[in-house]
Design a protein around this nucleic acid. Structure first.
Lengths: 245, 245
DNA sequence: TTGCAAAGTAAGTGCTTACTTACCATCGCT
DNA sequence: AGCGATGGTAAGTAAGCACTTACTTTGCAA
């Protein structure tokens, strides 16, 4: 590594050309959206109120008319993100699959929902990670509310299926961690590390199917469950995304 | 969520009480160590030169005597971390297991090595994540050098074992991603999100064994490979770490 | 048409930041 | 003893920060 390496990239986000005067609420929302983008990119400390104002095409004073402090603005953004919940309630959109005891559907739709959410709202993962690093309440709240809940819920399902004799007797929490690990790590890779997808370029559907396949084969009690499906789910999906070229 | 939530935690790192005059190189290393801790905690922008100086028990001017700029100090730290490589060369410490075609040993020792490294050098993951979020060269370099290399190496092994007929025909890159996901996500959880291990408290050995078990059963061609081992590797390891109480 | 509330700004305020300057203190060597 | 190299500091500086003040413009209802 050479000297003088660090040059934090400047994102010249083009000032939104909303020339005219805006209604109060409209301007408020616009500032919120703009600030969200900036906070997601540079974190709390890396984003100045001046930049926010410039990106919104107003003076700094306008920012402070709508939000008393920078903290308040940040919290307003996180509030919004927290209300989104993330991707909807798993208890709802997995209800059907769970009743049918369709393990593949349970894990695959969950994986897909998570990855799609992470992909369409890339700011979310960035805000969350920044928050976790900075020790901000948001990440703690998200953990306690969303993550804990998911572990409990999915862990419960796994436990049931173990009682059914369908899954091997592995600590359900470990299974959930393994599954979440594959999915979230993949999303984190795509939004943070390997945006160009140079190492692995597959669609979310392919990823969801592959991860689910590995996990289910990995925890299933019966060998039969493995052979049925998940056999043709791949064969060099690498660098052949439906999205690219 | 209530208003005015954000209060970035202040870490009152006690000033290192090294009263006396120090030799140049000694002081330099001390500042480096102290700064590493602070940068890992608060990132580049969140760490002031004043705090570094205070934590090292010297005046700010001393910091700038040893490092011309804050950037140079940061780079010096990342240089050191990068030279550590991370955890040693997998091609070396996996050599034996690979020659024996001992899949379990290959994945388990790799997982363990990674997790132990992450645990004993928690600053590493934090620095890396901060760097990735801030778009710093360090993360890119790490990606290109270490990560890409690991994918290639481990992917190569997987491909061989597929030719042997031992593994199912899944894209090797996907398999590596799934494996890395479980391991890294678990480490990230322990160092960033759930430091108290409230959700899952197992030793690195247990985690390595469990993840390897799931992965290998998940990708093995033969049903026999599954039953042999990995059967008794757990049964509610939750909340019973050898380290706690 | 006018009046007035709300949208908007220019130019600050005081504090913090990275970094500097000009000076003192102490160690080790002859 | 004494002196130069080196460890160390107090007190800056200019730029940048979050936030304020005092003021101007504009849409629109009566």
């Amino acid at each position: 590594m050479s000297k003088q390496v660090s040059t934090l990239k400047e994102v010249a986000l083009p000032a939104v050309t909303t020339s005219a005067r805006m209604a109060g609420e409209e301007r408020r929302l616009q500032i919120l959206r703009v600030a969200m983008r900036l906070f997601a990119h540079s974190g709390f400390r890396g984003t100045t109120t001046k930049k926010i104002a410039q990106a919104a095409g107003v003076s700094e004073a306008m920012v402070f008319r709508h939000f008393a402090t920078k903290d308040e603005l940040y919290d307003a953004i996180l509030d919004q993100k927290a209300c989104d919940g993330g991707m909807g309630d798993p208890r709802v959109f997995l209800d059907d699959a769970i009743k049918r005891r369709d393990d593949r559907a349970v894990f695959e739709t969950l994986a897909l929902r998570m990855m799609l959410h992470h992909e369409q709202d890339t700011e979310f993962l960035r805000l969350l990670t920044h928050s976790a690093l900075e020790g901000h309440q948001f990440s703690e709240m998200f953990w306690e509310r969303v993550v804990t809940d998911l572990y409990e819920f999915l862990g419960g399902y796994v436990r049931e299926r173990q009682r059914d004799g369908a899954f091997r007797n592995i600590d359900p929490v470990v299974i959930v961690r393994a599954f979440a690990g594959m999915v979230i790590h993949h999303s984190l890779n795509n939004t943070l590390w390997d945006k160009k997808r140079r190492l692995l370029d597959i669609t979310d559907e392919q990823a969801a199917r592959a991860f689910t396949g590995i996990l289910l084969s990995g925890i299933s009690e019966k060998a039969e469950a493995r052979a049925t499906r998940g056999r043709r789910a791949h064969q060099s999906t690498r660098r052949v995304s439906s999205r690219n070229k």
